[in-house]
Computed example of a mutant assay.
Amino acid sequence: MDRLLFGDNQFFGINHMSEEKARAQAMRFQDLDAILEVLQAATQEGIGTFMCTTHDRVGEICKVVKAEPERFPGFTFYPCMPYAHKYANAVTDHGMIGAVTHFMPEDGFLKSALTGGKALAGKDIEGIVKILIDAEMKMFSGLPTPVIFFQNVFVDLLLGMGMHGVFRIFHDHVVEKYRAEPAFITMNMPALLDALEGVGISNPIICSNINKLGFRMCGGFEAYEDTMRNREVRAVAMSVFASGALPPDEAIDWVCGLPNLHSIVFGASSRRNIRSTRELVDRYWRVPEPAHG
């Protein structure tokens, strides 16, 4: 993985500290060209990995990158799925079973089975998970996707329900069908690492909030530090600035000193902010230390 990954929250009106800023960003990035301009700026600043949801607008970005690769040399996607809002809207419109079948192939056996309630009754979770992953991955066909993330809304729901076997299904399908590294996003890295190790997934890629203030770090600040120092995990840090509560210089200096930090994902709306973050990471990045178990 690259040490800096470019995220997509700013493009879709997500800001965990300011609703007003989120609305302004959503209005600005209604225009696809505005999104593409920022992505080009990131690429030109040496950040060519886009960690993104499977939002419909990302599908539009994929089409442009495929049609005009010269604008995005070496551009790589790290899909994060499933996109929770898409499925929540489908549940509202079609009901629980209808939402699942809505994303399945029209002539598929599982769609027919689900319509009749047979798949859920038969606990055919593996087949459902695989088909939904494949549906989400269609927009990335023909594009490099070396790492594929399981989105935190679903990861943490499954974690809380004790359905840890689904993590193994996701892991194996991503490896076998897409020849990619499976990865997981969570609000509770220590608890997820326990669950993943429990189903035989070792040294996983886990993305979670990691910042000096402990902002949205469920499980406790000390538990995160202990996990990163003493266990095998490839950590990806998000919310390193604690949604603007930390000065950038202080935030990057602190997070870059952690062992087993492999990447930082951040969002920015301008070339100036992209360059500023890149320069800070270049200044403070240390070679990650191995875990000591």
Rank of each mutant, 00 (worst) to 15 (best):
D2P: 15
D2I: 03
G7D: 03
F11W: 05
F12E: 10
G13K: 14
I14Y: 13
E19R: 13
E20V: 13
Q25I: 10
D31K: 08
L32E: 11
E37F: 04
Q40H: 10
A42Y: 14
T43L: 07
E45Q: 15
G48F: 06
F50Q: 12
M51K: 13
V58T: 07
C62P: 03
C62I: 04
V65L: 00
E68T: 01
R71P: 05
P73W: 01
G74D: 05
F77D: 15
P79Y: 03
C80Y: 03
M81E: 02
Y83L: 04
A84P: 01
A84G: 11
T92P: 03
D93K: 08
H94R: 11
G98H: 06
T101E: 09
H102Q: 12
F103Q: 02
K111Y: 02
L114N: 02
L114P: 10
T115S: 11
K118V: 07
V129H: 06
K130S: 07
I131Y: 04
L132W: 00
L132M: 13
D134H: 08
E136W: 07
M137W: 01
F140M: 07
S141T: 13
G142P: 08
P144S: 07
F149G: 08
F149T: 01
F150K: 06
F154D: 00
V155C: 13
L157K: 11
L159S: 02
M161H: 05
M163W: 03
H164K: 03
H164M: 06
H171Y: 14
E181R: 14
P182D: 07
P182M: 13
A183H: 09
F184P: 12
T186N: 01
M187D: 14
L192K: 00
G200N: 12
I201M: 09
S202N: 06
S202D: 15
S202R: 11
N203V: 01
S208W: 01
N209H: 05
I210F: 10
I210P: 14
N211K: 09
K212L: 14
K212M: 10
G214A: 03
G214P: 13
R216T: 02
C218V: 07
G219Y: 01
G220M: 04
E222G: 02
E222R: 10
A223D: 03
A223V: 04
E225Q: 13
N230G: 02
R231V: 09
R231N: 06
R231G: 11
E232K: 09
V233W: 13
M238R: 05
V240T: 14
F241I: 06
F241H: 12
A242F: 12
A242Y: 08
A245D: 05
P248F: 02
P248Y: 09
E250C: 07
I252R: 15
D253A: 12
V255A: 15
G257H: 14
G257C: 13
L261T: 09
S263Q: 08
S263K: 11
I264V: 14
S270V: 10
N273R: 02
I274K: 07
R278I: 03
E279V: 11
L280K: 04
V281I: 15
V281F: 13
Y284R: 08
V287F: 13
P290H: 00
H292R: 15
H292G: 03
